[in-house]
Design a binder for these strands. Structure first.
Lengths: 188, 188
DNA sequence: ACCTGAACACCGTTCAAGT
DNA sequence: ACCTGAACACCGTTCAAGT
């Protein structure tokens, strides 16, 4: 029995955070968009941290579902890796936004502990999924090697998104990721 | 004839932006730290954008000086590349802060045009310097190849800083950057 | 030339009050 | 159960006023 208003708030807040970050999210703007008063948002999310944590958790759950679908639709791990980087490209296509948790990572100092935990959980999900993909590829039989590479790939793709965004240049993202492949960081 | 107060404002503002970003910078807090009223800051920097642009420009100038020193002290390009990644590590060592322009890159949507230009200029400096280093290493004779790799290295290192920061784990930064080297992204 | 107090419209948060 | 108005201490910005 999830509340409609609660869902509307989260739906309106997500793109705001992807564009402006946690700090840039305004309860009053959000309220105007949803059609309630800003005090009402506090009914569903007592503090901004509660909303931030809920957004990050939901973002991770959605990613989990997407990863599952990718894995199911394609048996080829190299193809899965392409779909993975495409997911990060998608945010840029969408009005030059970035990964919600990537943006929050930059705001680390201003994040309540509950939000930090959820952001870390998103990172963990990405690393675990990439590790599983890599272990099915030649040369990454060792689990520890695969995980180290998984973290590196996640960080590198997040960085590519950040740099491409600051230049508002989606082709730059493509070039950087392609360089990762030719350099051997991402198996291709 | 640079103003002392102006310099004090910039000196106090830089670590604030590295920790909390452009949005997280407060004129009132800044004023308290410097010992003036917030209205006085507007005398030196009419808008927050003016201060942000000045900070980013100064940050780039300082990086330029550091890069010059690194190049001069060591002829070995591989060693220079290690000193380069160490510079990004330094920000994390300093109370888990991040590169000023890296943080601003995430805030792209909220940046006045003048600030965006300076952030881009910082990126350009990094890419130009890395490109020059790479061209003196075997396998990167072609200028275009070297520049593509330079952008990739810059983005990857920025991403490593972002991910390590969100986990407040400096060892993670080291591991990721080391992975970049073993994978072949950064020549070692 | 340099600084300030006061005002403006913003912000997240709280809470008593409404239905 | 759900929403609101009003208040609080914050924010960047403006500007007339001080020295």
């Amino acid at each position: 029995m999830t509340s409609d208003t609660r869902e509307m708030i989260m739906a309106a807040a997500r793109p705001k955070v992807q564009a402006h970050g946690y700090n840039g999210l305004s309860f009053r703007e959000l309220a105007k968009e949803v059609g309630v008063k800003s005090a009402s948002i506090h009914y569903y999310f007592p503090t901004k941290g509660d909303l931030g944590a809920a957004l990050a958790r939901r973002y991770r759950e959605d990613a989990e579902a997407v990863f599952g679908r990718i894995e199911q639709e394609s048996q080829d791990p190299l193809k899965c890796l392409r779909e993975y980087t495409d997911r990060f490209r998608l945010a840029l296509e969408n009005e030059n936004r970035m990964c919600l948790c990537g943006h929050m990572a930059a705001e680390y100092h201003d994040l309540p502990e509950a939000v930090r935990v959820e952001v870390q959980s998103f990172t963990d999900l990405n690393v675990a999924w990439l590790t599983r993909l890599l272990t099915s590829i030649d040369g990454f039989g060792d689990a520890r090697t695969a995980e180290e590479r998984a973290i590196a790939i996640y960080a590198a793709v997040a960085g590519a998104q950040l740099v491409a965004r600051s230049g508002a240049d989606i082709a730059l993202f493509d070039n950087i990721v392609e360089s990762y492949r030719t350099a051997g960081l991402i198996p291709a």
